[in-house]
Design a protein around this nucleic acid. Sequence first.
DNA 1: AGCACGCCGACT
DNA 2: GTCGGCGTGCTC
Length: 739
Amino acid sequence: MQNPAAGATRVILVVAIDTPLRRVFDYRAPAAWAGEVQPGHRVWVPFGKRRVVGVVTECRDRSSVPEGKLRFAFERVEAEPTFDAGFLELLRWSADYYRHPVGEVIAAALPAALRQGAPIAVEETRWRLTVIGKEQGLEKVPARARQMRAAIEALTDVADRSAEDLVAAGISRESLRKLEDRGYVEHFTAETTPPASNEGLGTSRSPALNEAQQTAVDRIRGSLGSFVTWLLHGITGSGKTEVYLNAIATVLERGEQALVLVPEIALTPQSITRFRERFDVPFAIMHSGLSDGERLAAWRDARSGTARIVIGTRSAVFVPLARPGLIVVDEEHDSSFKQQEGFRYSARDLAIVRGQRHGIPVVLGSATPSLESLERAQRQAGSLLSLPHRAADAKPPTLTLVDLRKHGESQGISTPTLLAMRRHLDAGRQVLLFLNRRGYAPVLFCPSCGWAARCQRCDANLTVHRRSALLCHHCGAEQDMITRCPTCSSDVKPVGQGTERIEETLEAIFPKVPLARIDRDSMRRKGELEATLAQVDRNEIRILVGTQMLTKGHHFPNVTLVVVLNADQGLFSTDFRASERLAQTIVQVAGRAGRAEQPGEVLIQTEYPDHPLLSLLLRGGYDAFAAGALTERQQAHWPPYSRLALLRAEASHRAEPLKFLQAALAAAHRHAVKGVQLLGPAPAPMERRAGRHRAQLLLHAPTHAPLQRLLSSWILELESLPEGRKVRWSIDVDPAELF
DNA sequence: AGCACGCCGACT
DNA sequence: GTCGGCGTGCTC
C-alpha cells in the first residue's frame, strides 16, 4: 500500500454522467482531495475526448474496472456537495423506476448552469481599506482628488463593501483601482447570499372558510410532519386554493417550506399573485420560460431555504429543499405533469414518492381527479378531502345534451345552441364555446373524387388555416392553400369545423357582438392572452371561442352559457384513457360558467346522446362517471388495477421498428416473468409522424413489481440487440398515452 | 449524446 | 488529389 491512509480514504468515485448510457463510471480520486469527496459532489472528469461534469453517486475502495481503463477525476466543482444523500437517493430511485439512464435523470434535476460546471455559490468582489489606507488614506490623498477621497470615506467605519454597492453609491471602479495601486484599498472575492428574486406581498388575509374547507385544512395541518397522500377533491369554485393557502400558512409557521406544483399553462402572473398577496415571504418560481440565470437563482433559493414557497411546473418536483414541509400538486389530473419524451417521469407520482421520503404530507388537488388518485383514496381510508359546495352559495351549472342528429346544425352550431346564445347575450351575459380543434377546418376535401389534402410526412390530414393555408398539426409542415383538386381539378372544400371557422360563423350571425378566439394560433404573442382575458373581465368581449386554453385556470364570472361544440372525439377512442380525459375536459370547461349568484348553463353537442359515459356524467356528475369508469377499468384489468409499460420504437425506414420490437418480444420470452403479458408489437395508430415510422409493444402486469423485474434484465438485452441500432427506442413506465 | 475513425463519391 | 457522407464503436 503506497499511502498508509489509503485504507481510510475511498479512492474510487462512482460518477453519473449526462449521457444516454445506462451506466455509471468509475474514476480514481486524486490524493489531494480524495478524503474530501462524498456522494452528491459535482466533479470534472475526462470522458472520452471530452471534459464533463458528473455527479458522484458513491465512493468506494475498489473498482471492477480494469486498472488500465480507470482515469483520474480532474477536480471537484466546489467544496459543497450539490445534493445531500437523501435527495441523491430519490434521483437514483427515479432513474431505476422509470428505467432511465441515471446520468440523464440527475442532469434533469440540475439547472443548465450547474450542469456546465457553474458554482452554486454566488461570488462577488468586495473592497476594504488596507491598514495603511485606514491610518493615512485621507491624509495622503489630495483634496482635489474627490473621487478617491469619496471612495476612502465610503469604506471608513465598515469592514468591507461590495463593488456593486460602492458603484451604486457613486464610487467609480477607476478610483478604487487607483487607490489599490497606491496600497490604500484592496479587493477580495467572497460568497454572498443574494436576496430572493421574488418576494411576497402579504397584503391579503384569509377569508372565512366554510365547514368543508376548514375540515380539510385541519386534517392537512394535523398531518404535517408525517407522510400522507391527501386527495383534495373540490368542485370548481369550491375554494381549493384557499385550503392550500391555509395549510401553507401553518407550514411557514413551522419554519418549513412548501412546494406547489401546477400545470404548465396555469403558471401565470395572476395565479402567482394569489399566493404572493397572502404571504410576506420569499418565493421561488420555476417554469420553462426562465433564463438559465433566473432558473439557477430560483433553484438556489429553494435549496438554501431562502425561498419559503416554491411554485413550479413539472420539473420543480426535482428542486432540492432545505426544510420541506408540504407538497401540493394542483390540478393533479393534468397531463402536463407527465413528461412525454426522454425521461418520461410523472411529477405527480414522484411528488408522492418525495413526500414519503421526506416524511411530509402531499396534497393532490383537483375538481376532476385522475382515476389513479381516486383509486388510491379508496384504498387509503380517510385520505379523501371533499369540497362539495361552491363558495358563496353559487349554484352548480345545469348540463344539457344537444342531440345533433335531431336538431338542425349549421357550421357546427345547432339551433338550440343559437337560441341559448341569443338568450344569454340579450341578458347581458357572456357565452363561451369550446372546441378542441384549432384552425379553420380539419380536412380539405374534393367532393368529386374523394381526394383530401394529406401531410407528406405524417399519416394525417392537413388542417386548413385561414391565413397560413394548410398546416400539419402533428409535424408543423406547411403547404400553400389550393382551390382545385390536384387529381381531378374540381373545386375542393374545407370540411368540418375548427375554432377559426366557428369564429367566422358567429361573426356572421352576431355581427355586432364583440368576439374573441383563444387558441394557440390567436394567442401566439407574449401578453396577448392576458390582454384578451382582461378585456373579457371588463365585459368588452361577449363571445369567447377557444380550445383547451380556455379550460385552464382562468375564471369568467360573467359567463353563464358554456357550449361544448363536439363531445364525440373522446367517445370511441382506442386509448382506454380517452373517456377519462373527455369527462375531465367537459367538467372543467363547465366549471367556467356561472360563478357567484348567476346560475350557469352548459350545452353539450353530441351525435351520441345515449352514450353511457355521457349519461353518467349528466346524471351524477364527475363522481358518477368516475365510479363507472373505475368499474370498467377493474373489469378490463386496466390501470389503476394493473400496471403498464410501453416499449416504443421509431425509424425512418418503415419495417425497422416492428423488426426491433419482434426481436424485443423474443428476448422478453427468454426473460419471462410470471404475470407479465406482452401485447403487440403493433404499429402506432398514426404510424408515420414527421417522416418517422412508429410502433410499440405493451407490457401489462397486475402490479409494478413483476414489471420492474422483467424490465431490469430485459433492457440490458435490448441494448445489445443488433436490430436496436437502426431504430430509436425508449421505455415508458406508466405511460399516459397508449398511442 | 458526442466524438473519432474509416472507407467510398464529386469537387476547389 | 481533398472535403465530406454517415456506418461503427467507445466512453470508467
